[in-house]
Simulated scan of single mutants.
Amino acid sequence: MSLKKAIGIIVLILLIDQISKIYIKTNFALGESVEVFGWFKILFVENKGMAWGVELPGSYGKLFLTLFRLFAITAIGYWLYDSVKKKSSKILIVAIALIFAGAFGNIIDSVFYGIIFNESVYQGEVASFMPEAGGYAPVFHGHVVDMLYFPMIDTTWPEWVPWLGGDRLSFFDPVFNIADSAITIGVLLLIIFNKKAFPKKPVTAKEIATEEISE
């Protein structure tokens, strides 16, 4: 697979990811939701930290996280370039491109959203793009926009269940975005098609002869 096609995948995912995030950010108040199906909602939340909302303490924690993401995406970008150069399997290149696009999509939020949008608030006015008063956070301190929510199960445990009876039973609680989906799909491709993504090189007669001599 050529590098041009891999870049095409990355650009397409980034466009879908950023268009969806900008639309949600400028049309939804924080916490506002729209039901698409009973098991699927568009719910606007912002993630200040890592996956699943895990945060590093303090402003320096957010800065460290963003810088780490920049370092990680540089490594992923080199991995993609090297894989294309070595003519690795198509499934590997597609998976890396998906992971790169997803990581880059969330990095855009972390680096730039704080300076190009004002703050989103619960039950308030929606944020605006490039506000005159300035953004809600300095560069590298933006929040990642999430909106895809799949509450496939939202009920309560039966009263007869020990310790859990009457408590809320829910699945699937995390809210995520297109970039997160791309990363997840890329990782799943590497796991499911591991043998195709990382095929073992056939042993040559010369290597066999070398091993026999050394023994």
Rank of each mutant, 00 (worst) to 15 (best):
I183D: 04
S181V: 08
D180P: 07
K200N: 10
N194S: 15
P174V: 06
G166P: 10
K206R: 10
E212H: 14
G186N: 07
T184F: 01
G166Q: 12
I183K: 01
F193Q: 01
L190A: 06
D167L: 13
I178T: 08
K206V: 08
G165A: 12
I178G: 05
D180R: 10
V187D: 02
K201M: 11
A205F: 09
K200W: 03
T210D: 13
T204G: 02
A197K: 02
F198C: 04
P174T: 07
T204M: 02
L189I: 05
I178Q: 03
F198K: 06
K206P: 01
I213N: 07
L189G: 01
I191S: 05
P199I: 13
D167S: 13
L188G: 05
I191F: 08
G165W: 10
F176E: 03
F176P: 00
G166S: 14
K200M: 11
L189A: 04
F198W: 08
I213C: 00
D180W: 08
T210I: 11
V203H: 00
L189M: 09
D167R: 13
S181I: 05
A182K: 08
L164Q: 15
A205L: 13
D180H: 10
P174K: 07
I192F: 09
F171H: 14
G186D: 05
E211H: 07
K200Q: 14
A205S: 11
I208W: 07
F176T: 01
F172A: 02
K196H: 08
L169S: 09
E211I: 07
K195M: 09
I192R: 06
